[in-house]
Design a protein around this nucleic acid. Structure first.
Lengths: 181, 181
DNA sequence: TTGTTTGTACAGTTTTTTCTGTATGAACTA
DNA sequence: TAGTTCATACAGAAAAAACTGTACAAACAA
């Protein structure tokens, strides 16, 4: 089967590329390969199919399919009469990018925002404390300025995520071609 | 030193937050802590200072400061009379974000583009091969469509990176406050 | 009810990554 | 020139992460 083989090779190249780049999504190459396999599978896959195709344990398949779901790269499919869980890759890579972007950075925004708020309160208390030295006060003021800068930056980042989530970004960077949603 | 301690605590909270979020830049918490320390250090740091402050080996400091430099999060500073290498964090977090974005995704774009190009050629050869089965041809056509979709997506991503690098993004998501460059 | 199938928690193993100490080379000093 | 100070390459140790097999719980079948 010469043709079948050539087809397989063309697919494998892409799957391997996905595997080598999925770290951008915080996932391992194995998980990327799993995604790639599912991407070219033209029907939903069960954990058993993945185990068979990738030669890895079902436990692994289960945990990594969950990781893929968390990032909305795959989702459950339903098919009547089939008892096993079925999964397929989500169609919209633009949306996946946005989801990734959103999940990763929103989390960061909220962690920073909380920490900065707390520290700013403390530093302001320190500044208005009459018992501390002039020298320390100066240092604290510098830190306050730095924290304000970070605060501003994260507010910007938050608005940036908004722009992706609301799809406004597509006004600035339009999707060419008919593949648009 | 009650005030000094409180100041330290406020700083540490932010440094720890940086450490816990630096994975978004593909770096380890240790490296994040190193960055955080340098961020609040109001003068350039030497490897020896980092070793002393973080209690880690100089070798570690050397390799992680290089990782930070690669992402342009820190850069060398010059100070006459000082023989040791000096490093300080870069001021512009917006630019750092853009640099990260650019470095990470451009690389991905070029890897995908190359792989897709190669595979598309092979699949087109396959399609116009008269000896292969109708069934296989159908499958190959589906794959071609999928690759075209990915190709389009990466063209979009490439334009997206352009928009960040050119700072056009700031038209859509402006930097508020006087902290702007 | 009992038996079967399926997914996942958990403990342990293997693999990978991070970190350290030693050794070396480059840059500067005298 | 030789001596000193620094950064980093490299090998091995320590720590973390990925992966597997077992065991169990939930869902369903009969």
């Amino acid at each position: 089967m010469e043709g079948k083989e050539k087809h397989e090779k063309a697919r494998e190249r892409i799957i391997e590329t996905i595997a080598q780049n999925i770290h951008l999504y915080g996932l391992t190459p194995s998980t990327g390969r799993q995604y790639g396999m599912m991407y070219f599978q033209n029907e939903p896959s069960t954990l058993d199919v993945m185990t068979e195709k990738l030669g890895m344990s079902k436990t692994s398949m289960s945990t990594s399919v969950r990781a893929l779901s968390d990032l909305k790269l795959v989702e459950r499919a339903w098919k009547k009469g089939v008892r096993k869980d079925l999964y397929h890759t989500t169609e919209d890579w633009y949306q996946s990018f946005i989801d990734l972007f959103s999940i990763k950075w929103r989390r960061s925004v909220s962690l920073y925002t909380a920490a900065i708020k707390k520290s700013l309160v403390e530093l302001h208390e320190l500044i208005s404390d009459p018992t501390i030295s002039e020298e320390l006060k100066k240092e604290v003021q510098i830190d306050i300025d730095k924290l304000m800068y970070i605060k501003n930056y994260y507010e910007w980042l938050d608005r940036l995520v908004d722009v992706f989530e609301s799809h406004e970004i597509f006004n600035l960077v339009p999707i060419n071609d008919e593949t648009k949603e």
